[in-house]
């Protein structure tokens, strides 16, 4: 209770009281309050306006005309790839075409062809031509009498739905387009090779020319213009098929619907979009 509540002349009572230095109680503290309010409001307003300014400026810097994903015949395009290993003759035309199309350095491959050889003694041997020129005709010939069976398996990026390589990229340089193509942003990549380790299929490598991560792009620069990937285009036996798996009329959709399809390392759950015909348990 203050003295002012007591009976008696109000003015006299209040004037005699020691003024508490409280909120807006005196002329002096009111000035302080206004000054504080001006200062705080100014700083706050500056901060709040600075942030959107930064963002707007960033957006306006680059006008990007490209778009992700496209619609054809009323559905969204989703690319897929099918390898019919029963047709492959190991000519290596795909390896050579890929190298030329994509400037892949010597000794590195975006796609390659493995040969699985089953010997009569029960052992299985895998070989591959790492010269990248004239395929298996350059390797020392095997004795056909000792061989039970043998076949070729072309390998390339599986363009998985659940991609371990994109998950681990620390700078967002690995990405997947809405059409299902897994790509590397070569300007953004710092070459840490984390994705190279993360890929269970060994399809990624550090390009010795650019020192960035590199991989099969399904020839994104060709498929975006309606062409086929270089390896599919040159394959003389029709081993490799590429197309829109959302279009039921496409060659690949019909092949997927009428064949027994498998993927590599399905137990890893990466859901590859590169499918295979004619795999065996030994093919990994």
């Amino acid at each position: 209770m203050s003295c002012c509540d007591k009976k008696g002349p109000k003015d006299a009572c209040c004037e005699t009281q020691t003024q508490p230095k409280g909120f807006m109680d005196t002329a002096e503290s009111r000035r302080e309050f206004i000054w504080d309010a001006v200062k705080n409001f100014t700083f706050g307003a500056m901060t709040l306006t600075a942030i959107p300014l930064f963002i707007e400026k960033a957006d306006a810097e680059e006008v990007h005309t490209g778009k992700d994903g496209k619609e054809v015949k009323g559905h969204t395009v989703l690319f897929g790839y099918l390898v019919d290993t029963t047709k492959c003759i190991g000519c290596g035309g795909c390896m050579l075409a890929c190298k030329k199309e994509n400037d892949v350095p010597d000794g590195q491959f975006r796609t390659w062809v493995e040969r699985y050889v089953y010997y009569k003694d029960g052992s299985v041997h895998v070989d591959v031509n790492t010269k990248g020129t004239f395929a298996f005709t350059e390797l020392p010939p095997l004795d056909a009498k000792e061989v039970d069976k043998a076949f070729f398996v072309p390998k390339l990026c599986n363009h998985c739905v659940d991609t371990p390589c994109i998950q681990v990229c620390p700078v967002g340089a690995s990405y997947k387009t809405k059409e299902g193509v897994v790509l590397v942003d070569y300007e953004q990549c710092i070459g840490c090779a984390y994705c190279v380790q993360a890929c269970p299929f060994g399809t990624r490598f550090i390009n010795t020319k650019t020192q960035t991560a590199d991989k099969c792009t399904w020839c994104y620069h060709r498929i975006e213009h309606g062409e086929k990937p270089a390896c599919v285009d040159v394959c003389p036996t029709g081993t490799r098929t590429f197309g829109d798996i959302n279009d039921p009329e496409s060659e690949i959709s019909k092949a997927l619907a009428t064949n027994r399809i498998d993927v590599l390392k399905s137990y890893l759950g990466t859901r590859p979009k590169t499918r295979y015909i004619g795999l065996t348990a030994e093919v990994v």
Partner: peptide, 18 residues
Amino acid sequence: GHYRGAALQTAADKERKL
């Protein structure tokens, strides 16, 4: 998405050699 949008255009504009 979680990537540089301009990279798509760069990738699509690469020279077709074969």
